[in-house]
Simulated scan of single mutants.
Amino acid sequence: MPTHFHAIVWIDHSQAKVFHVGRSGDDEIVMHPHLPTKHLHHKAGSIGSGHAAPDKEFLAQVMNAVSDAGEILIIGPASAKTEFAKYLREQHSKIGDRIVAVEAADHPSDREIVAYAKQYFKIAPVRTASAGGSGRG
């Protein structure tokens, strides 16, 4: 079980990566939707947007992964990030209230996601005491 206050979620329609980050390190959870991503083709004159509806089971799975976080940053390409934020705010407002931002991000590496979260949340690395003295002078 994660023990960090901050969480960052990178999400698109084919997967979600959740990182709980803190001064002492980070934990990663990767999730995939139960159903494969559907590609719909919208034809002129047809009814509807031509977009597949969000996979609510997938969004619930990601929500469970961040349910204990105190602050949640959601990033990702396209519309999945805003769909997830909307899902949290409408279906689970106590968790949705902990969203601090929803931002665009293409396909960063895991290391880049964690670095961005630490910079966003202003999490400094743990510093060890140097062996050279107290630094007082």
Rank of each mutant, 00 (worst) to 15 (best):
M1V: 13
T3L: 08
T3E: 11
A7T: 00
I8Y: 00
I8V: 05
V9L: 05
V9A: 03
W10H: 10
W10P: 01
W10A: 09
I11A: 08
D12Y: 06
S14K: 09
S14E: 10
K17W: 00
H20M: 05
G22Y: 02
R23M: 05
R23T: 05
S24M: 13
S24F: 13
G25T: 05
G25D: 09
D26E: 08
D27S: 01
D27I: 00
E28V: 04
H34G: 15
H34Y: 08
K38W: 04
L40A: 05
A44G: 14
S46L: 06
I47R: 15
I47W: 14
S49A: 15
P54I: 02
D55R: 08
K56S: 10
E57S: 15
F58H: 06
L59V: 04
A60I: 06
V62C: 05
M63G: 01
A65Q: 06
V66D: 01
S67H: 12
D68C: 01
D68I: 01
D68S: 10
G70Y: 08
L73F: 10
G76E: 02
A80F: 00
K81Q: 06
K81A: 06
E83F: 07
E83Q: 15
E83D: 15
F84L: 14
F84Y: 11
K86R: 09
Y87H: 12
L88E: 06
E90V: 12
H92Q: 12
H92C: 05
K94P: 02
I95D: 14
G96L: 11
D97P: 08
D97N: 15
D97A: 15
R98Y: 08
I99D: 10
A101M: 03
A101P: 00
V102G: 07
V102L: 03
A104W: 11
A105V: 07
D106F: 03
H107Y: 04
P108E: 04
R111G: 12
R111T: 13
I113M: 06
I113F: 03
A115Y: 01
Y116I: 03
A117Y: 02
A117R: 02
K118Q: 13
Q119G: 04
Y120N: 04
Y120K: 07
F121K: 06
F121A: 09
F121C: 09
A124P: 10
P125A: 12
V126E: 09
V126H: 11
T128E: 11
T128R: 13
A131I: 11
A131K: 13
A131V: 10
A131F: 11
G132E: 05
G133E: 05
S134N: 10
R136M: 08
R136Q: 14
R136E: 13
